[in-house]
Design a protein around this nucleic acid. Structure first.
Lengths: 205, 205
DNA sequence: CTTGTTTACTAAACAGTGTTCAGTACATTT
DNA sequence: AAATGTACTGAACACTGTTTAGTAAACAAG
């Protein structure tokens, strides 16, 4: 029965075709400005076809959000091989930053936009991608605790605190709430604030 | 010439009428789901009329964003009268939180959504509301430095760090990125993480 | 009081959006 | 060769933000 296998393969390829066209359009034009019709035009199919492969636009965005997590975790890996656990943590923070600046649209989808979470909610599923990425952070924080870098013992709570902080800079920056500082000083200021955070948790956590 | 004055008064009242109807609809239905036509219906005018008082939807959202800042700064004031500067800082953080939880749609508009910043950008204006709210925080941090609570001397950088952190929790929570924790533990976990942050900067900053 | 002008407003249209569904043409099975 | 199943689409539905031409009332000047 090679025929059903071929069909499944074709179906998978079509999903990929849609996803790649969508991703390309989204990343170069921004998520808000790309419509289902644009994507359909790009792959030379009718808009209705897309709905044979994705329940709605949120599902499509959720699928791209997943690609984003794959990419982010890939970029985290080199950091995880550093010897010192605290260096590891700092490098993860820097990479979170860098990922956001280099892939602002993807980051937005992964951590700011409502759409992908709405897709999750209406299937009442769990956010596995977020969980596994957060898992990397927790492990790293636990290593810091075990190595005696941090006195505080609850790795999960500490991880939330660290994530929130790093995410805060990023979200404020991407959503233009730091534009009240002159453009020249902006990045420098963020660097300084991040360094300050690092030094503060090194001393105080 | 009382006639032009009356006309100006009427114009101002119409703006208010639109703004209040819009605000009411937005806060009870969410910003994404309210259209210009909905607002027009609510005040029993044609949609086109709204465009005589606001350039576009972004300007309308920006105006409501301003109301939000008035409200937030009002809620900050009691915190500013606390005697101890560090208590002041902590209380401001708690009130930032509380404001976000009690007015999620307003908070979204003020610190997460793109629309109001787009309105600002296309008039190339400065985000005065943000600046003045941030000013309160800087002053508070400066007081902590002067009182010897913090060793670190740059109030602006420290303020950015603190804002980012508090904002991080809030943004992740509001955009449902903390839903991977069980609902029962969620708020408790956030409280703990915030307390940890407070203790950490108290020791390490 | 009658002009002319300004103002406030709206109906209707434009160009777009996400989404659904009946219908078609082709592939596969019987 | 006929019947079934699948992949796809044209066209529509009910919206969206926004613009424009036109109307009716308010006002100012003669």
């Amino acid at each position: 029965m090679g025929i059903v296998e071929r069909k499944e393969r074709e179906k998978e390829e079509m999903r990929k075709l849609i996803l790649e066209a969508a991703q390309k359009l989204f990343l170069e034009t921004g998520f808000e400005k790309v419509s289902i019709r644009n994507i359909a035009d790009a792959i030379e199919y009718s808009p209705a076809t897309i709905y044979l492969y994705f329940k709605d636009k949120n599902e499509l965005l959720y699928a791209i959000h997943n690609i984003g997590f794959q990419k982010m975790i890939e970029e985290f890996y080199p950091a995880l091989s550093l010897a010192d656990p605290f260096d590891r943590l700092v490098e993860m923070g820097r990479r979170y930053f860098r990922f956001a600046f280099e892939n602002p649209e993807l980051f937005d989808l992964m951590f700011i936009m409502n759409a992908p979470m709405d897709a999750l909610a209406c299937r009442d599923d769990i956010w596995d991608e977020g969980r596994s990425a957060f898992g990397l952070l927790i492990k790293c924080v636990q290593d810091c605790i075990d190595a005696g870098v941090f006195k505080y013992q609850d790795a999960e709570v500490a991880a939330i605190m660290i994530w929130s902080s790093v995410h805060g800079y990023t979200a404020l920056f991407l959503r233009k709430r730091l534009d009240m500082f002159e453009e020249s000083r902006r990045k420098e200021l963020m660097e300084e604030a991040f360094d300050l955070f690092i030094k503060t948790i090194q001393k105080g956590l």
